[in-house]
Design a protein around this nucleic acid. Structure first.
Length: 419
RNA sequence: GGAUGGGUGCCCGAGUGGCGAAGGGGCCAGACUGUAAAUCUGGUGCCGACUGGCAUAACACCGCAGGUUCGACUCCUGCUCCAUCCA
């Protein structure tokens, strides 16, 4: 469990804290929300559809919001969307999501739950974990459209931002229903837990409004919604995407070292946003670090990378990742935690192993063809020396203390260790 | 159900008988640098240890299956999926 320190902000109202950090994008009622958060302990919810087997950085932003809310005394409901995942949210998509089997959805949901409990305290009702499969799957079609469907105007839905794109490329009735499902979630949570707010990424705005509306119509009660900026680069591209796909929180899918490197390499222009939204450093410190210029900003990036890695993978892993990065890029330091493969020494007896074969074997390149190309283009070095010959045989005597460091391109390192 | 248009490599997208398929994006590498950006250059089917091999070996040769042809992404037939309009 990660604890947010008290010095994170001078503000006492979490609304001001979130505002200060640049999270808030749209609100249904700004003043009322601020006031409510000031006066009351509020129960709020954020939904997560288990469409993958690990959370990614986009989800993580939402988790951070919940951490802030919890720190300031409010009660988060983590809503696992096993029910809604059966439908698939069309928001911001140009094509339909692939249908998922209930088994995968269930499994993913379980993994989500474990991850959440690393950041949010579920003890003694301080947070609640719910699953909308609990009510959505048992709905009766006719009852549902009579009771809930009647509150939704198709005319209005069609004008909603989230369907705009899909009206051009095609939208099935299945997906069209997503909004009703999500709206209904809010109603259920209001009834069960007196949940008064729904938060989400800015792409969830239409869905959130649907819920706020529905609760008002069904219960004659005012509830609230708020969306948060999506994590984007200064050029508006989504952050947290790597060539391999998303940047996952699960160490199996994205190693702490890779995770660290991602943040170590963000663009100068994005340092501020990242520090502010993804770390709990006090704002003065954020300002100070992000105002560093030229090469000095690397210092800020190092802190960013360390802090975010620490948050996600713990201090020990963060230290290891940092040590490894320093050893590789700055020279010196411990090579213990550099990405590596241990291989048996006999393998390198006699003729040895072809360099390209070796590269492919340790997954430094996806195919041997790529390996040849890399070497031909001068993209590979061994222990700091550029490899010119694609026919190079790697033998035992090339290792120093049983280690050999391969470097592909500028930033990809891999250590081979003999055993 | 009918009519029309369309399915091309990671993505977008050209191509109407010689294509391992233009162009762009992305990605990889080189130069410059600060593990940044921008810019410029090269590369990007697979295999491989080489100026070679492979589509009767594959995830992967232009949606799938046949046919015409010396030769098919290109022509023909059937199927399938998508979009638009009509019912």
């Amino acid at each position: 469990m990660y604890e947010i320190r008290d010095n994170v902000s001078k503000h006492t109202n979490v609304y001001d804290v979130l505002k200060e950090r640049g999270f808030i994008k749209q609100t249904t009622h700004e003043e009322e929300i601020r006031e409510l958060l000031e006066k009351e302990k509020v129960t709020f919810y954020i939904g997560f559809d288990p469409t993958a087997d690990s959370l990614h950085v986009g989800h993580f932003m939402q988790v951070i919001i919940m951490m802030y809310m919890q720190k300031y005394g409010h009660t988060p409901i983590v809503l696992i969307g096993a029910g809604t995942a059966m439908i698939g949210d069309p928001s911001g998509r140009t094509d339909m999501r692939q249908m998922m089997t209930p088994e995968t959805i269930l499994e993913n949901g379980e993994k989500f739950k474990t991850t959440f409990s690393r950041f949010i305290d579920f003890d003694g009702g301080k947070a609640i974990c719910e699953n909308n499969a609990n009510w959505l799957l048992d709905l009766k079609y006719v009852d549902f459209i009579r009771d809930i469907g009647r509150h939704f105007s198709v005319n209005r839905m069609l004008t909603a931002e989230c369907f705009k794109q899909r009206l051009e490329t095609g939208l099935s009735f299945l997906e069209f229903n997503y909004m009703l499902m999500q709206g209904y979630d809010f109603l259920e949570l209001y009834r069960r837990y007196n949940c008064k707010m729904e938060f989400g990424g800015d792409d969830q705005w239409s869905n959130i409004l649907a819920g706020v509306d529905l609760v008002r119509r069904e219960e004659q009660e005012q509830v609230f919604g708020m969306t948060f900026a999506l994590l984007t680069t200064s050029e508006g591209k989504k952050m947290g995407k790597t060539q391999k796909g998303a940047l996952w929180l699960d160490a199996e899918k994205t190693t702490p070292y890779e995770f660290y490197q991602y943040w170590r390499n963000v663009e100068d222009a994005d340092v501020r946003t990242c520090l502010s939204m993804l770390t709990f450093l006090p704002m003065e410190e954020v300002e100070e670090l992000s105002s560093l210029k030229d090469a000095k900003i690397n210092h800020a990036k190092e802190i960013l990378a360390f802090e975010v890695t620490k948050l996600v993978h713990g201090e020990e892993e963060a230290n290891k990742a940092q040590d490894a990065a320093r050893a590789l890029f700055a020279g010196g330091g411990s090579m213990d935690d550099v990405p590596k493969t241990v291989m048996s020494a006999e393998k390198f007896d006699g003729e040895g192993v072809g360099i390209v074969t070796l590269m492919a074997e340790i997954k430094l390149v996806p195919s041997k063809g790529e390996g040849f190309r890399t070497i031909q283009q001068g993209g590979l070095s061994i222990d700091g020396e550029k490899v010119k010959d694609t026919k190079l045989m790697v033998t035992k005597d090339m290792f120093t203390d049983g280690q050999l460091l391969l470097k592909k391109g500028k930033k990809t390192f891999h250590l081979i260790e003999l055993k």
